[in-house]
Amino acid sequence: MNEPLYAAIWRGKTNGSFSTYEVPRHESQTVLDVVTYVQRHLDPTLAYRFACRVGMCGSCAMSVNGTPRWTCRTHVAKVVRGNTVRIAPLAHLPIIRDLVTDMREFFDKWTRAKGDFVGTRTRRDDFARVAPNSPERTAADAGVECIGCGVCYAACDVVGWRADFLGPAALNRAWTLVNDARDVGGRIRLRAVAGDAGCHACHTQGSCTQWCPKQLAPTAAIAGLKRATAKAAVRGEL
């Protein structure tokens, strides 16, 4: 524990470079702790994002030794190589500065995937009753805990080579709504997520599922969308 840790941190914009900082090691130290130490003690100009520090807000994701991770819940001990960690902004997003990326496109794609709930009830209606163990509710449950961290988006190769691909998180969100018994946006949503910019571009390789810190499975959600859109298409309902 007394050996120092070397943190190579990305500085600047797209054409920036890594700067290395020496940081004291502690037990149960997280990658976010390392970044925070650098900013508080070594270089106050370092820009990065975080809010909750407990894995709820989804704002602290960065690329750690080449792998996208939620840094507030990633222990240094788990990812360190020798005594170095390489910390960079998330891949596939424009860099604003240092470790801060521009997430607009990521969230705009949720809107394009019709990720907003469309209901018909008003406050004067009774609650919808959804059987907790119905297959739809189970499918929605499996994807609903997404924290919007962008880890899956950064892990997805298809996002990297197709700028218009909606990506795993937006498609996962759409799938939870497809399975929401109260939602009536079905047909428009299925159209929005079909095709080459949507679920059909996915290669089912599962990088998103491998790295999602909430252990969700966008790959399975996308496979569900492929089945749902195909069913709708052959019935002439897409």
Binding site: G195, G198, A230, A232, A233
Partner: peptide
């Protein structure tokens, strides 16, 4: 880009 309905159908035929 071919339309999304055709793409969904192509996927269906390829699966089948």
């Amino acid at each position: 880009m071919i339309n999304v309905v055709t793409q969904a159908k192509l996927w269906y035929w390829q699966r089948l």
